[in-house]
């Protein structure tokens, strides 16, 4: 977890290991293979900016190894359910 200032450029969540900068400096296109999470397999690692207790910061899933994690996706803020 590192503290980040909230700039105007909008950082977003990304899968760890994707979109690596190649040695020639070009952004390598990620393979079209989509890893889909399955029970009984490793949870795909990701990094994402977060809002946490008044701060703009970020998380990386693999930093939580050794702990149980409840990962909850939902349609959107200010939705009704």
């Amino acid at each position: 977890m590192s503290e980040k200032t909230g700039g105007c450029a909008r950082p977003t969540g990304a899968v760890v290991g994707e979109n690596l900068i190649a040695e020639n400096g070009e952004l390598s296109k990620k393979e079209t293979t989509v890893v889909t999470a399955k029970v009984g397999t490793k949870a795909p690692d990701f990094e994402a900016p977060t809002y946490y207790k008044g701060e703009f910061t970020s998380i990386k899933l693999s930093d939580y190894l050794g702990k149980w994690v409840l990962l909850c996706f939902y349609p959107g803020d200010f939705t009704f359910v």
Partner: peptide
């Protein structure tokens, strides 16, 4: 948007 998806991940990082 994301669907409602809930994952329980154990201390080894396994779903």
């Amino acid at each position: 948007v994301e669907l409602r998806g809930r994952f329980i991940i154990d201390p080894d990082g396994v779903i």
